[in-house]
Every structure is written in structure tokens, then in C-alpha cells.
């Protein structure tokens, strides 16, 4: 018998089932089809403005920095200001997300490299798919638009998120993702990111910048 057949038959023997019981099969199909939300966490169930304020507050509690801008057109200047404030070279790398492409990068002195990170970039800019207010979590989806490596390799990770994409809880975010990608379909990687990289492996003291970014900066676009 193959390992697969053996393991499945052991499980069935232990559970005393055949795997063909109609009620079990339909319970499993139903659960996957309907994907019940379970217990609702009230914290994030707020009107738009309070929800966005909670997202900012929670992201900052996780040691990210957040700057709010009025419109998408203000993003390049905000990125340039962040680099300047941190004494970093005016250079970023980003993917080809159409929302980023449409921003007036030419109005700044920023030098822009395209594509995935080779590990030498100091700063990378990705556009988030969503934010989740309950824990101040960014949701990034992989693709040439926003390469996954840009979330992890640069020392300074910069993420742009639209206030209208901030959901109260994870469940609302999954609903949004299913709407964008189709039920049961996932991008290669979905990254939930809550603050910059850290480790407490040395004497249980928290230190920032373990392997991923030492800083996480969020540009929150209000309009």
C-alpha cells in the first residue's frame, strides 16, 4: 500500500469511518463552501473613520510608523520625506502596481529601481492589498506588481495602503480577497505584516531588525 493509502486508512480505522458517509462528506463540503466566520471580534467593527484610526493606533503599537496623506498624488513626496528624515539615500525599489505607476514620482528627486529585491536595496515600496484594523496588520499579495522580496529584504520597508481598503477584521479582509481573486483562489503568497522584524531569542529581550526590515513605514492614503 502507498503511504497515502495507509495513512488515510489508519485515520479511518481509528475514527471508525469509511470516508463515504454522506453526512460527513456533506458537512465537510458545506464548511468549505460557506466558510463560517466563527466568533466575531467587536474591536474592529467600527465606522470608517474610527476603523482607520484604530488601524493606525494598532500599527504604531506594533512599532510601525504611520503617516497620513490626503491623496495618492501625495505619496511620492511622503516617501521622499521619510527617506530624508532617516538620512537615507533618495533611492527606492518598487514593482509595477498600477496604483504606484500612476503617482507623480517625477516630482521628487527619487531614483527608482524596478522589480524584485536583490538584497542590496535599503528601501522598498509596496502597495498593500488591505489593512486590518483589529491588530494594525498590513495585507500584501505577491505578484510582479508588489514583489514579495520587497517586504523582507530592504532595511526600510515602506507600504502604501488606501484607507478605503482598511477592514475591521481578518474575516472582512478574506471576503475582499475572495472578491478580487475568486473563491478558493489565492495569490502565491499573502503576507500579513504587523510591525517591523524582531527577535526575543537572546534572553527574551525584544530587539528590532532580526532578518527582515528594521523599520516598517506605512503611508496611509485618506482620499
Amino acid at each position: 500500500m502507498t503511504a497515502r493509502a495507509d495513512i488515510l486508512s489508519n485515520i479511518r480505522r481509528s475514527l471508525g469511518v469509511t470516508g463515504r458517509e454522506r453526512p460527513r462528506v456533506s458537512a465537510v463540503e458545506d464548511r468549505i463552501e460557506t466558510a463560517p466566520r466563527g466568533l466575531v471580534v467587536e474591536r474592529g467593527r467600527l465606522p470608517h473613520d474610527e476603523r482607520v484610526a484604530l488601524f493606525k493606533e494598532q500599527a504604531e503599537a506594533a512599532l510601525a510608523t504611520v503617516v497620513e496623506v490626503e491623496t495618492r498624488a501625495d505619496v511620492p513626496a511622503a516617501v521622499a520625506a521619510y527617506l530624508r528624515d532617516n538620512n537615507l539615500p533618495a533611492r527606492i525599489r518598487r514593482g509595477d502596481d498600477p496604483r504606484l505607476d500612476a503617482m507623480p514620482w517625477g516630482d521628487t528627486a527619487l531614483e527608482i529601481a524596478a522589480g524584485k529585491s536583490d538584497g542590496k536595496d535599503l528601501a522598498g515600496v509596496n502597495h498593500a492589498f488591505a489593512g486590518v484594523a483589529e491588530t494594525g496588520t498590513l495585507v500584501m499579495t505577491s505578484g510582479h506588481e508588489n514583489p514579495t522580496t520587497l517586504n523582507f529584504l530592504p532595511d526600510y520597508a515602506i507600504a502604501v495602503v488606501d484607507a478605503k481598503d482598511v477592514t475591521g477584521d481578518y474575516e472582512d479582509m478574506w471576503a475582499k480577497l475572495r472578491f478580487a481573486h475568486g473563491k478558493g483562489e489565492m495569490p502565491r503568497t499573502v503576507n500579513w505584516i504587523t510591525g517591523p522584524s524582531r527577535s526575543a531569542d537572546i534572553e527574551q529581550k525584544m530587539l528590532l531588525g532580526a532578518h527582515g526590515p528594521r523599520s516598517l513605514h506605512i503611508v496611509l492614503v485618506k482620499g
Binding site: G143, M186, T189, G212
Partner: peptide
Amino acid sequence: EMSVYTTFSTGPRRPTDVD
């Protein structure tokens, strides 16, 4: 409240992915 990185991985890179 939440760990820093929670990563959901589904299959290998897609044809249009760069990493």
C-alpha cells in the same frame, strides 16, 4: 496581539511573478 509575519503560501511562483 499578532506575530509580525503570518504568511499564507499556495503553490509555486505563478507565470507572471518575479520572485
